[in-house]
C-alpha cells in the first residue's frame, strides 16, 4: 500500500504544481490523473474494495476529461467565461471531488478492514472536512469566475492550493500507515 499512496501523493502534487517550460507543460493534468490511477490500481491489487473500484473509475473519467480539454482548446476558447467554459470548469471540479471522496472513503474502509478503528474514524473526519471545504471553495471559485471577481477568485485559488497541500499531507500519512498494515 505504501507504493500505491506514494504514487497518489505524486499525482496530487503534479496536479497542484504544474511545471512549465515556456508554453510546454511538463506534466499536464491527464498525466497527473494517470499517476493517481496507477496508485489506485496498486492499492486494488493489495486490497479489493468496491470503493477503490469507484475511485479507479473516477480517475479514468478525470483522465479522459483532461485529455478532452487539451483537444477542446484547439477549437473552443475555454478561457473567456463562456457558458461552456463555466460548465467545463465545474465538471473538472466535480470529477476531482468525486475521485478524492472515493479515495479517502476507501482508505478509511481499508483501515477498518485491518482493525484500525480509531485511525479510520480520524481519517473519516478528515475526509468530511476536506470534502466540505473543497465544496465551499469550489462554489466560491465558480461564482467568482463566472462574474469576474478577480480578487476573490485569486484568494479562493490560493486557499484551494493550501487545501491540496493538506490533502497531500493526508495521503502522505496514509502512505506511512499503509506501510504497517
Amino acid at each position: 500500500m505504501y507504493q500505491g499512496y506514494r504514487r497518489i501523493f505524486w499525482g496530487i502534487f503534479f496536479l497542484t504544481f504544474t511545471i512549465n517550460l515556456g508554453s510546454l507543460k511538463i506534466l499536464p493534468s491527464f498525466a497527473a490523473y494517470l499517476i493517481i490511477h496507477s496508485g489506485i490500481k496498486t492499492l486494488q491489487n493489495e486490497h479489493s474494495s468496491h470503493l477503490l473500484d469507484r475511485a479507479s473509475k473516477a480517475s479514468v473519467v478525470a483522465t479522459i476529461i483532461s485529455i478532452l480539454e487539451i483537444v477542446f482548446v484547439w477549437f473552443v476558447d475555454l478561457d473567456n467565461q463562456s457558458y461552456l467554459a463555466v460548465l467545463w470548469m465545474t465538471i473538472i471540479i466535480l470529477i476531482e471531488l468525486i475521485l478524492i471522496y472515493f479515495l479517502l472513503v476507501a482508505s478509511t474502509d481499508i483501515l477498518q478492514h485491518y482493525d484500525h478503528k480509531e485511525l479510520a474514524q480520524e481519517y473519516d473526519k478528515k475526509m468530511r472536512i476536506y470534502i466540505s471545504s473543497y465544496t465551499l471553495l469550489a462554489i466560491v471559485i465558480i461564482i467568482s469566475y463566472t462574474f469576474s471577481f478577480i480578487t476573490i477568485m485569486t484568494l479562493a485559488s490560493i486557499a484551494m492550493i493550501i487545501l491540496r497541500i493538506w490533502l497531500m499531507a493526508i495521503v502522505n500519512s496514509l502512505k506511512k500507515v499503509g506501510a504497517f498494515v
Binding site: Y83, V86, L87, T90, I93, L94, L97, I98, Y101, I131, S132, Y134, T135, A138, I139, I142, I143, T146, F147
Partner: peptide, 16 residues
Amino acid sequence: CIISVVVILLICLGIS
C-alpha cells in the same frame, strides 16, 4: 456537495 455545486452552477448560468 455535488447537489450544492450543481445548484450554484445553474444559478450562475441563469443569472448570466
